[in-house]
């Protein structure tokens, strides 16, 4: 980790060396370029270890040992449901999957956050407004409900970096975007055989 940060700092310093007008580093530039607005506060610009490691431009070589240890760290930090129940209500899960609001400066903090799964994933086959940044999850329930499958799916939702470091997907549990109950509801939306996600297209 330290090696990477040092490397990034050296690269950044070199890139700015000739730029007399620039602030010392990227953090100072960002602090000077953004202002807090409603719930979008300035501390959001500070990066944790995952964000720092995953900010490397495409093609930049990273230290594999560092990446492996970071991934293991994320896996160890995953919090499974307290009561051991993974599956909530798929109908409420459908609402979470379709709701794109939450944590934007323009959003009402009193309202529940959405998961906005449809922004990136295809889910129920009759819903056409889905994005393609992530893989299609239509028919996800065919994977079954073994303990391993439940834990795997929960972990992907809680902190995608536990399995796929630097995935584009948000850490819905680890970052507190969704509540435990919302995560259970999304789990049911994915895995319940009665969920539209697991129905054939009409």
């Amino acid at each position: 980790m330290k090696a990477l940060i040092a490397g990034v700092n050296i690269a950044l310093t070199a890139s700015l060396a000739a730029w007399t007008m620039a602030a010392d580093d990227i953090n100072a530039v960002l602090q000077n370029s953004f202002v807090a607005k409603n719930q979008a506060t300035m501390d959001r610009l500070e990066r944790d270890a995952v964000q720092t490691a995953c900010s490397a431009p495409r093609g930049m070589l990273l230290d594999n040992d560092m990446l492996a240890s970071l991934r293991a760290e994320r896996l160890a930090a995953v919090v499974l449901p307290a009561d051991g129940e993974y599956l909530g209500d798929w109908q409420r899960g459908a609402e979470v999957a379709g709701n794109g609001r939450g944590l934007q400066s323009s959003d009402d903090p009193a309202q529940p956050n959405g998961g906005n799964c449809y922004a990136c994933h295809q889910l129920a086959p009759d819903k056409v407004a889905y994005g393609t940044l992530g893989p299609s999850l239509t028919g996800y329930g065919a994977r079954g409900q073994s303990e391993a499958m439940l834990q795997y799916t929960w972990t992907k939702l809680w902190d995608t970096h536990a399995y796929n470091l630097c995935s584009h997907m948000p850490r819905f549990g680890a970052q507190g975007i969704l509540t435990e109950q919302q995560l259970k509801d999304v789990m049911a939306y994915l895995l319940d055989p009665a969920s539209p996600v697991n129905q054939a297209a009409e």
Binding site: S15, A18, L30, P57
Partner: peptide, 22 residues
């Protein structure tokens, strides 16, 4: 040189992951 440095800075910011959604 400042224009080229601005490009390099822009590239760094383009890939900068932050906020609750990373």
């Amino acid at each position: 040189a400042t224009e080229r440095a601005m490009y390099a800075l822009g590239k760094d910011i383009f890939f900068y992951r932050a906020g609750p959604h990373d």
